[in-house]
Computed example of a mutant assay.
Amino acid sequence: MAHLRGSDRGQLMLVGALALAVLFVSFAFLLNTAIYTETVASRGTGVEAVDVVGYGNAATEATAGTIDRVSVGGNDSYDSIHRNVTAAIGDWDDGTARQYASEGDAPSTEVASVTNGTRIVQNETRNFTDASASEDWTLATDVRTRNYTMAVEDGGLAGDATNAFNVTFDNGSATYSVRMYDPGSGVEIRTTDGDGSVVGTCDRPGPSVRIDFAAGTANGSSCDALDFYRTLEGDYEVRYANADNVSGTYSLTASVRHDDLAGSNFVAYGGDGPFRSTAIYSADIEVVYRSPTVYYRSEVTVAPNAAEVAA
């Protein structure tokens, strides 16, 4: 076996140390490269996710706005408002596609189907009786509703709950009656269930109160008397009682065709009293997002200002 001199051992140790140093540097470089690559990939995925979600939200908002616009434009035929919705979303899709194309992405939105509806409206301030001045009457049966709002004036209300105007929602398994009256301090809103138990109350100062059922608000702030609306499942009946003990306006969109509502309950379109007009209740849209690294497809049901509960 050869014997190494001291100087040879020193040189060998130096070479070994240099080799280890090169190895450690190479390992650190590879590790940093892997971390950097993973970070870039994660950032890319995050950016894509933001783009997809943002586009989907924009498509939903554009569709909701379109549904509302065509539904209040007049008493047109259903074929006409279907064409208007499809054309408007097509125009929006063309415009946004050009914007995204500059980034190499190709999103698209199209209307897959629509659900016909009917707007029930009273624009003139008066009591809530029907066209025949009936105090107790049914607005719609076997429906869901959206965009249901009321503006009620305290001067036309009864002074107690017994004789109060009330609107009742009945789906066959649950019943909720919303009473509105003025005990002398403003508008009291009280909801009872089918057993007569109070499930929520709130009060607002007069002279008028705006109620939004889907938002669960009275004059813009939360009212627990309206919480039930967001728990109603399936279709239900909507009816008024003591409708001569209230004064104001209201509007809603029901998920049935114009001809499915009792015509005798309504005045002519645009008249002084409750009237009905053709509308779109909801639309199903197909949203697709394509990019060099992502393919996303979803079908979304858009029903503006509807309660988000299982149908």
Rank of each mutant, 00 (worst) to 15 (best):
residue 7 S to K: 00
residue 12 L to C: 11
residue 13 M to D: 00
residue 14 L to G: 04
residue 22 V to T: 09
residue 24 F to R: 08
residue 27 F to N: 08
residue 27 F to G: 09
residue 27 F to D: 08
residue 27 F to E: 00
residue 30 L to I: 12
residue 32 N to Y: 13
residue 35 I to H: 11
residue 37 T to K: 15
residue 37 T to M: 13
residue 40 V to P: 05
residue 41 A to I: 05
residue 43 R to Y: 09
residue 44 G to K: 11
residue 44 G to L: 11
residue 45 T to Y: 09
residue 50 V to F: 10
residue 57 N to W: 05
residue 59 A to H: 07
residue 64 A to S: 12
residue 67 I to E: 03
residue 69 R to G: 07
residue 74 G to P: 00
residue 74 G to W: 07
residue 78 Y to G: 06
residue 79 D to N: 15
residue 79 D to F: 11
residue 82 H to M: 14
residue 83 R to L: 15
residue 83 R to W: 12
residue 87 A to L: 14
residue 87 A to W: 11
residue 88 A to G: 04
residue 89 I to S: 01
residue 92 W to V: 03
residue 93 D to W: 07
residue 96 T to A: 12
residue 98 R to T: 06
residue 100 Y to N: 04
residue 102 S to W: 13
residue 103 E to N: 06
residue 103 E to P: 02
residue 105 D to Y: 15
residue 106 A to C: 08
residue 109 T to G: 02
residue 111 V to T: 12
residue 115 T to P: 04
residue 115 T to I: 12
residue 116 N to K: 11
residue 117 G to H: 08
residue 117 G to C: 01
residue 118 T to P: 04
residue 121 V to T: 04
residue 122 Q to D: 00
residue 124 E to P: 03
residue 124 E to A: 12
residue 126 R to E: 10
residue 126 R to L: 10
residue 126 R to Y: 07
residue 128 F to R: 06
residue 128 F to T: 06
residue 129 T to W: 02
residue 133 A to W: 09
residue 133 A to D: 09
residue 135 E to R: 06
residue 139 L to G: 05
residue 143 V to W: 02
residue 144 R to H: 05
residue 147 N to G: 14
residue 147 N to I: 00
residue 147 N to Y: 13
residue 150 M to T: 01
residue 151 A to R: 13
residue 152 V to K: 02
residue 163 N to V: 06
residue 164 A to T: 03
residue 166 N to Q: 12
residue 166 N to S: 13
residue 168 T to Y: 06
residue 170 D to E: 00
residue 170 D to C: 09
residue 174 A to H: 02
residue 177 S to A: 15
residue 181 Y to K: 03
residue 181 Y to S: 10
residue 187 V to W: 01
residue 189 I to G: 06
residue 189 I to P: 06
residue 193 D to E: 08
residue 196 G to P: 02
residue 205 P to L: 11
residue 205 P to M: 05
residue 206 G to I: 00
residue 208 S to M: 10
residue 209 V to G: 00
residue 210 R to K: 10
residue 211 I to R: 05
residue 218 A to Q: 01
residue 220 G to N: 02
residue 222 S to F: 08
residue 223 C to T: 00
residue 227 D to C: 04
residue 227 D to I: 01
residue 229 Y to I: 02
residue 229 Y to H: 07
residue 230 R to I: 00
residue 231 T to N: 11
residue 236 Y to M: 01
residue 239 R to M: 01
residue 239 R to F: 06
residue 245 N to T: 08
residue 245 N to G: 09
residue 247 S to T: 12
residue 248 G to M: 07
residue 251 S to W: 03
residue 258 H to N: 14
residue 261 L to D: 03
residue 263 G to Q: 13
residue 264 S to E: 11
residue 267 V to A: 13
residue 268 A to Q: 15
residue 269 Y to E: 15
residue 269 Y to D: 15
residue 270 G to K: 06
residue 273 G to C: 10
residue 274 P to W: 10
residue 274 P to D: 14
residue 275 F to Y: 15
residue 275 F to I: 07
residue 276 R to Y: 00
residue 277 S to C: 01
residue 277 S to N: 14
residue 279 A to M: 07
residue 282 S to I: 12
residue 282 S to E: 13
residue 282 S to R: 11
residue 287 V to N: 01
residue 287 V to D: 01
residue 289 Y to R: 08
residue 292 P to Q: 09
residue 293 T to C: 02
residue 293 T to R: 12
residue 294 V to D: 09
residue 297 R to L: 13
residue 303 A to P: 01
residue 303 A to N: 08
residue 303 A to K: 03
residue 305 N to R: 14
residue 306 A to I: 00
residue 307 A to L: 05
residue 308 E to P: 09
residue 308 E to D: 14
